[in-house]
């Protein structure tokens, strides 16, 4: 009986591992090929060796080559910088609005909130053309402001913050109110520290969404020196000579930061799936 259960467990692991390997084959191939030259990739391609590493003397030659061919590091710095600005401003702007909708009384609150819920269903693609012409008319084309300004405020995150703040017992604020603390002070010193998890969740959601964003940056940024990471990557795909190893190294480089952020904030990301998944 015990033996049977043990062999069942082993069988389960074998099955899981096989399925995981099949599921992951594109990523395994990407990673392994980034360490091979093209001759190696093509000679290995017909069999299992396509998924097995074979290291050259200079292991990272594809990585060095790809960084020499396109300004990937520069593009990563660009993406990273503008995303940090969006995250900081977005957290403040969206959470303050969320707090107002959760706690404060002001004229037109219900109307504005229902408007907010209504605009939440407008797909980004509906507004991308006029957004582009507004940016163009403001003279912001080809500037980071074109990437930053439209990305800060988000009905979905305001809604998320509001829901979260509603879950905080009001009694916590009552004492501070009696002491005469201003709403601003209550918000920054009391609510924000209490609601750290939702801030972490929104941070990681924004980071991954913007790091992976492509269509909007393509529309507003034209200088090579200002391009975002996904734009730089796509140029690698279109410039010749096409070199499999170089491309795979490029793809791997771009994937590392999102994977790192995801792994370190996994708990909050999964919480984000639960909450945005429930609404979006």
């Amino acid at each position: 009986m015990k033996n049977k259960r043990l062999s069942g467990t082993v069988l389960m692991y074998v099955m899981l591992t096989v399925i995981a390997l099949v599921f992951m084959f594109p990523l395994i191939w990407m990673l392994v090929s980034s360490f091979k030259d093209d001759a190696g990739i093509f000679s290995d391609i017909t069999g299992v060796s396509a998924f097995l590493p074979s290291f050259k003397a200079d292991v990272f030659f594809n990585y060095k080559e790809v960084l020499g061919r396109i300004p990937l590091i520069r593009a990563m710095v660009n993406s990273f910088s503008y995303i940090v600005v969006v995250i900081v401003l977005g957290l403040v702007v969206n959470s303050m609005a969320g707090y107002a909708f959760a706690r404060l009384k002001f004229p037109g609150k219900n109307l504005i909130f229902s408007l907010l819920l209504a605009v939440m269903v407008i797909p980004a693609q509906t507004v991308m053309l006029p957004q582009f012409s507004i940016i163009y008319k403001m003279g912001l084309s080809n500037s980071y402001l074109a990437l930053i300004l439209p990305a800060i405020a988000s009905p979905m995150y305001i809604f998320l913050f509001r829901q979260n703040f509603l879950g905080i017992p009001e009694s916590i604020e009552e004492a501070a109110k009696l002491d005469g603390a201003s709403a601003l002070r209550i918000f920054f010193q009391l609510i924000m520290p209490l609601a750290k998890p939702i801030y972490a969740t929104v941070t990681i959601l924004v980071f991954i969404a913007l790091w992976n964003d492509f269509v909007w940056p393509v529309m507003v940024i034209s200088d090579t020196s200002k391009q975002t990471i996904q734009m730089a990557l796509s140029s690698l795909f279109s410039i010749s000579p096409v070199n499999y190893g170089n491309v795979m190294a490029g793809l791997t480089i771009v994937t590392i930061p999102v994977l790192a952020i995801f792994l370190s904030l996994q708990k909050y990301y999964v919480a984000g799936i639960a909450s945005t998944g429930a609404k979006n």
Partner: peptide
């Protein structure tokens, strides 16, 4: 006073959403 605070709290988000979401939607 609370009204003013509330309006101030939502103002940045409302202005940004107006310029970059509602106006573009109308323009579409």
């Amino acid at each position: 006073k609370e009204s003013l605070t509330g309006l101030a709290f939502i103002a940045p988000a409302v202005v940004l959403l107006f310029v970059f979401l509602l106006v573009p939607f109308m323009l579409t």
